[in-house]
């Protein structure tokens, strides 16, 4: 993945139908691993691309992921999606533990790291080896942001996630707290952890949510500078956000958008009504 994609070839996992891939412009790549890496894993040939989307809760990540996946597949890429807490190993354990409030900050952080490691080794790395584009709904930056907001030693969290592969592209869906709270209230309502209720930040769920999410947004801004996120304004319509995300990815992949342009986007925005689309 640190080298240009090979020219074409369905053998490495891409969908058949044309050869939309061109060699990417070599860029000054960051080291493969965030820290110590996985010494026992031989990652000689990661020809895929790891693209991650960060953003706070209700920033619209999953809707956008769906649109990106469709579009990338039309372009001929094999796409694998992965998301925070979705590992086979941990998703159930995390939900049980969250419901019971029996976690402290350290065990909470560790359980997310297990989920992450499980997906990294069993999903993400194999997919990158097979030449897929991996779309990750949140990545380790979510853990770093939470650590910073919750006062958990960040040096420890960074060392903990030292086994992680650094993404090729981080897209940050930036939505302000005022927009977020409206979306949340129109959706499933304020959730305990999303409002940082365990931190006693405000008298009621609204105050707590606003205080917690505002802090998270500040932290994401800091991380954005440190790790070079590509920022996309998430306060706009689904359509406009999707356009921007595609533009970023197109630029990154050095891709000429030959198929699946505007038409696909319109198809996509006719999807489920969310109350905040165009």
């Amino acid at each position: 993945m640190r080298e240009p994609l090979p020219d074409g070839g369905d053998s490495d996992g891409r969908l058949p139908g044309g050869d939309p891939l061109r060699s990417t412009t070599p860029r000054s790549a960051p080291p493969l691993w965030l820290g110590e890496g996985l010494p026992y894993v031989n990652t000689g040939d990661l020809s895929g691309k790891l693209i991650t989307i960060e953003g706070t809760d209700s920033s619209g990540r999953s809707t956008q992921m769906k649109g990106l996946r469709e579009w990338l597949e039309v372009q001929g890429y094999g796409v694998v999606e992965t998301g925070w807490t979705r590992s086979e190993l941990m998703s159930e354990a995390i939900n049980v533990a969250k419901a019971g409030h029996q976690l402290n900050r350290v065990t909470f952080t560790l359980m997310y790291a297990i989920d992450f490691a499980d997906r990294l080794e069993n999903q993400i790395i194999p997919a990158l080896e097979s030449g897929f584009v991996v779309l990750a709904d949140r990545y380790l930056y979510t853990a770093l942001a939470r650590a910073r907001v919750r006062g958990i030693d960040e040096e420890w969290v960074r060392a903990l996630y030292g086994f992680a592969i650094q993404p090729d592209l981080v897209l940050y869906l930036k939505v302000d707290a005022e927009t977020l709270i409206r979306r949340v209230l129109q959706g499933d309502g304020i959730e305990y952890w999303e409002a940082g209720m365990d931190l006693n930040l405000g008298e009621d769920p609204y105050d707590s949510f606003m205080a917690y999410q505002s802090r998270l947004l500040d932290v994401f801004d800091e991380l954005s500078g440190e790790f070079g996120f590509r920022i996309v304004d998430g306060n706009r319509s689904i359509y406009e956000i999707q356009q921007d995300l595609r533009r970023e990815i197109r630029e990154f992949l050095d891709l000429e958008d030959t198929q699946g342009g505007v038409l696909e986007i319109e198809e996509f925005t006719r999807g489920p009504a969310t109350g905040w689309s165009r």
């Binding site: 354990a93 533990a97 402290n104 359980m111 080794e121």
Partner: peptide, 30 residues
């Protein structure tokens, strides 16, 4: 806290050296 995940991982042979290590660290922290 981690018993069920640990048991499932071992049974299904899902654990990698890293997840094995992290599960034990979680148990330890708890």
């Amino acid at each position: 806290l981690v018993k069920s995940a640990s048991r499932m991982g071992k049974k299904k042979d899902l654990l990698t050296p890293t997840t094995f290590s992290l599960l034990h660290a979680t148990d330890f922290a708890d």
